[in-house]
C-alpha cells in the first residue's frame, strides 16, 4: 500500500512526534491553577488558630489568635508570582501587623532548577526581611540580584512586590504608585543584537572569518558574562506557553525568538555553528587537543541518533512534569554560571576532556538544542522548497545538509 511506503521510513519520527504531542495535550488538559490553600498553614504564626481572607487577587489572609477570647492579629500571609528564565515562580510573603516583611519564600516553580538553587543558596530571600510594603522591590534599585541568576531573582522580587503592594494599598490604605518598569536596553541587549547582526552578515555575505570573532564574543559575553546560552529549557518553556514580559526581557525576544525565527525563515543554522558559546568552547578545545579522534561515517551517523533519543526523552519529561527547566541536562549553566550538582560537574568534565580529542563531542552526539536547531532549519528549507515549487509551478526538493555558511 502506498501510505505504508510513506510511513515506514518515517516511523520513528512519527512515533516520537506522536508521543510528544500526546504528552503536550496531556499537560495542557491536566494543568491546574496554583492552589494557595495547601500553603496556608497556621503554624506560620505562633499561636494562630484562624485565617481570614483579606484579598482575593493576589490571595492574602490575616492570621488571628482567638483562643483567649479577644481576637489578636498576628500577621498576614500573601501569595504572588513572577516570571523567571524558563518558567513562573510562586512566592509566599509573611507580613507583620505593622506592615513589614517577616519572610519571603519560593513555594513552587517551573524555573530552571539550577537558578533557583543559586538564589536559595544566597541570602537574597533574607535581604527581603524587614522591608516595608511600599518599597520598590526592584532588582537593581532597592535590591541586589543574585549573580548568574538575576532573572530568577527578579521573578521572585516581582512575586513579593505583587503581594506587598496589594496588601499595602488594600489593607493598610497606603498610596503606592504602580511601579514603572523601564524597557531594559543595556549591554546585554546591545551585545546580543551585535552578535546576531554579525552572524547574519557573516552567513549571508559568506564571510567565514567573522565566525571566529562571533564565537569569541559569544564565549565571553553570551557564556561567561550573561550566561544566556539557548537551552532546552527555553524551547520547552516556549512550547508550554511561557513568554516573559518584554520590557525587562528584551534580550529574550532578540535571542530566544530571533535565532529560531531567522533559522526558520532562511532554512539555515546559525545557533550551533556561530552563536552557541558551548560549541565555540569545544572548537577551541579541539584546536588545543587536536580533535582528531573520529568514527567512520556509517558509525557516526548511527551514533548521532543518540541526540534525538535524548532530546525526545527530555522533551517528554518537560511536558509530563510541566516544568521546562527540569529536563535541561545541558552543561551550559555549569560551565558559564558555575552552578550545578556533582553530576553536572562530572558531565561537564567528561564533555570538555572528550572535546579535546573528539571535535564538538557534545554537539555531534548529545545536544538537544542542536536537534531543535536541525528540525527548525529543515522545516524552513522544506517550506521554502514548497513555496518555490509552487511559484515555479513544480516540485522542488529542499537541499539536504546543514552547512552553516
Amino acid at each position: 500500500m502506498n501510505w505504508m511506503h510513506w510511513v515506514r521510513p518515517r516511523l520513528w519520527t512519527l512515533l516520537a512526534m506522536g508521543t510528544l504531542l500526546v504528552a503536550l495535550v496531556f499537560t495542557f488538559l491536566s494543568r491546574r491553577a496554583f492552589d494557595h490553600q495547601q500553603y496556608l498553614d497556621l503554624s506560620l504564626f505562633d499561636g494562630a488558630d484562624r485565617f481570614e481572607q483579606v484579598l482575593k487577587s493576589p490571595p492574602a489572609f490575616a492570621a488571628y489568635r482567638t483562643a483567649s477570647g479577644a481576637q489578636e492579629l498576628l500577621g498576614y500571609v500573601a501569595f504572588g508570582a513572577g516570571p523567571g528564565y524558563a518558567g513562573s515562580i510562586a512566592t509566599r510573603t509573611l507580613i507583620s501587623p505593622a506592615g513589614h516583611i517577616i519572610a519571603a519564600e519560593v513555594l513552587e516553580h517551573t524555573e530552571t532548577p539550577g537558578y533557583i538553587r543559586a538564589v536559595l543558596a544566597s541570602d537574597f530571600l533574607r535581604r527581603l526581611r524587614g522591608k516595608e510594603l511600599a518599597d520598590a522591590f526592584m532588582v537593581g534599585q532597592d535590591l541586589d540580584g543574585v549573580t548568574k541568576a538575576t532573572i530568577s531573582s527578579r521573578g521572585i522580587a516581582q512575586g513579593v512586590r505583587q503581594a506587598s503592594h496589594a496588601m499595602g494599598r488594600e489593607e493598610f490604605g497606603l498610596t503606592i504608585p504602580e511601579p514603572k518598569i523601564p524597557v531594559n536596553i543595556g549591554l546585554k541587549e546591545i551585545v546580543l543584537t551585535a552578535l546576531l547582526l554579525l552572524t547574519v552578515i557573516g552567513t549571508q555575505l559568506r564571510i567565514p572569518r567573522l565566525r571566529w570573532f562571533v564565537q569569541i564574543g559569544s564565549i565571553l559575553f553570551v557564556g561567561f558574562w550573561f550566561n544566556s546560552t539557548i537551552s532546552l529549557a527555553n524551547v520547552g518553556g516556549l512550547l508550554l506557553g511561557f513568554v516573559p514580559p518584554w520590557r525587562q526581557n528584551l534580550w529574550w525576544y532578540i535571542w530566544v525568538l530571533g535565532i529560531p525565527l531567522f533559522t526558520l525563515v532562511r532554512g539555515q543554522s546559525i545557533n550551533c555553528t556561530w552563536l552557541c558559546p558551548f560549541g565555540a568552547t569545544q572548537e577551541l578545545l579541539a584546536k588545543v587537543g587536536g580533535g582528531q579522534i573520529r568514527c567512520r561515517p556509517e558509525y557516526e551517523k548511527r551514533l548521532r541518533r543518540v541526540r534525538f533519543g535524548l532530546a525526545w526523552l527530555a522533551m517528554l519529561l518537560v511536558f509530563l512534569v510541566g516544568s521546562p527547566g527540569v529536563a535541561g541536562y545541558e552543561p551550559f549553566g555549569t560551565l558559564f554560571g558555575f552552578q550545578g550538582l556533582v553530576v553536572h560537574w562530572i558531565t561537564l568534565v567528561v564533555i570538555l576532556v572528550g572535546a579535546l580529542f573528539v571535535r564538538r563531542l557534545w554537539c555531534s552526539f548529545l545536544c538537544p538544542v542542536g536537534v531543535m536547531d536541525e528540525l527548525t532549519w529543515k522545516l524552513g528549507r522544506r517550506i521554502r522548497g514548497l513555496l518555490k515549487g509552487r511559484l515555479d509551478g513544480g516540485e522542488t526538493e529542499p537541499k539536504a545538509g546543514g552547512t552553516p555558511v
Binding site: 579522534i293 568514527c295 516544568s323 529536563a327 541536562y329 562530572i346 548529545l366
Partner: peptide
C-alpha cells in the same frame, strides 16, 4: 571497530549515563 571508534562510543555512553542520572536527579527533586 577501530580503537578511535571505541573511544568515541565510550565517551558518548559515559555521557548518556551521566545525562540520564541528571534527568533522574532533577525529576526526583521536583
Amino acid at each position: 571497530m577501530k580503537g578511535s571508534e571505541r573511544i568515541v562510543f565510550g565517551l558518548v555512553l559515559l555521557a548518556v549515563v551521566l545525562i540520564l542520572t541528571t534527568l533522574y536527579t532533577e525529576v526526583k527533586g521536583m
